[in-house]
Computed example of a mutant assay.
Amino acid sequence: MSWTRVFLTALAACALFGALLVGATGCGSDEAREGDGVKPSPVGKVLEDTDEEGRHYREIDKKDAPKVAIEIQPDGDSDGWDVRLTVHDFRFSPAGAGKTAEPGRGHALLRLDGRPLSFLRGPTHHIAGSLVPRGTHQVSVRLHADDDTVWAVDGEPVGSTADITVSDPGPTDTDTESASAPATSDRGAHK
């Protein structure tokens, strides 16, 4: 084997090894997280900061940032709570959407007292009353990109929070009437 062929083979091996090494380590902050499952995107910058489950924050300019507000009302038909999100500069992606961060798109993560409760693909949700025991509770929402990074501005996640308080049911009008009226029974009454 000639020295030229050995030299070219060694050079090709070095080029391949170098490409693998550079690809594995990455050069930019977005590329460095590719191994964490976060793919580079032209939208914002992926930060080192993560949420409670390890999802990276995706920093964007305030002028480009989506906004979300949360409103919670007791459900009159059940013992649960109706959640309504109002979003600006944000669209909910359907289930099965691609895993790439797109400007102003994604899903919301609803939390109850800091624990993940539900991923939302739309602006409404119902929280069952059985999930909310007596006391005051914090319901929060954060907006996520489709690659599951958390949209962030100035290092803070884009989100909103509301408190709900569950107390013992008070007496109803019928309870008050029956308590003040004499007890009656129709047992044994003739028809």
Results as ranks from 00 to 15, higher is better:
M1T: 12
S2Q: 10
L8V: 01
A10D: 06
C14T: 06
L16R: 07
F17G: 05
T25P: 00
C27M: 11
E34Y: 15
V38D: 11
P40C: 09
P40S: 12
P42M: 05
V43H: 13
L47R: 13
L47H: 08
E48D: 11
E48K: 14
T50H: 08
T50A: 06
D51C: 08
D51R: 04
E52S: 00
E52A: 05
G54N: 02
R58K: 10
R58A: 07
D61N: 03
D61Q: 07
K63G: 00
A65W: 10
A65H: 06
V68G: 00
V68Q: 00
D75Y: 11
D75A: 04
D75V: 08
D75W: 12
D77R: 08
G80H: 04
G80D: 04
R84G: 01
R84V: 08
L85K: 01
L85F: 01
D89Q: 07
S93Q: 03
P94K: 09
G96A: 03
G96C: 00
A97G: 02
A97I: 05
G104M: 01
R105A: 06
A108M: 09
A108V: 06
A108L: 05
A108T: 07
L109V: 07
R115N: 03
R115Y: 01
P116C: 01
P123V: 10
H126G: 00
A128C: 00
A128P: 02
G129E: 04
S130P: 02
L131Q: 06
L131V: 02
L143D: 01
A145E: 02
D147I: 08
D147C: 08
V150S: 07
E156Y: 15
G159I: 06
A162K: 14
D163P: 07
I164A: 11
D168G: 02
D175K: 00
T176H: 06
E177G: 00
A179E: 12
P182N: 14
P182A: 15
T184I: 07
D186K: 04
A189F: 10
K191A: 03
